[in-house]
Amino acid sequence: MKATPDQWVGLDDFHGNALIMAFYPADWSPVCGDQMALYNEVLPEFQRYGATLLGVSVDGVWCHTAFARDRKLHFPLLADFEPKGAVARRYGVYRQGDGWTERALFVIDGDGVIRWSYVSPIGVNPGADGILRALQSLAGERAPA
């Protein structure tokens, strides 16, 4: 997926570290704004677990750039734009009739395996507590017995 107008990222880029994928319906809509703003604040907590956060929507890369700049976001927003929603479909969170994705969270471990997921009602900010619990349990598994 495109991360910036001239930069692409894939799962392999994050091998070895936990990855958080936060699918959200659209840039600029009020609830997403709140959700991304919350994650922007909570980012240091995610980083304590060595986890990288990626926001994903079907918006194009220029839209993402403007949105991220306006909200001063410190994490990348990926454009699932062409073919539209292709990544979301692979995660099973594309909303066919609406043309956007569910508000869905995935925590993926360092081997690329989805370890936790959650689909929130579309209008509800799912918060960060579920993500943190998932990261905590991943970290617990890695800790020596």
């Binding site: 703003a37 909570v42 907590e45 900010n125 799912p126 507590d129």
Partner: peptide
Amino acid sequence: DFRSGVASGVNG
């Protein structure tokens, strides 16, 4: 305080 809030589902 902040961390306890995030863990408790404070979203805003």
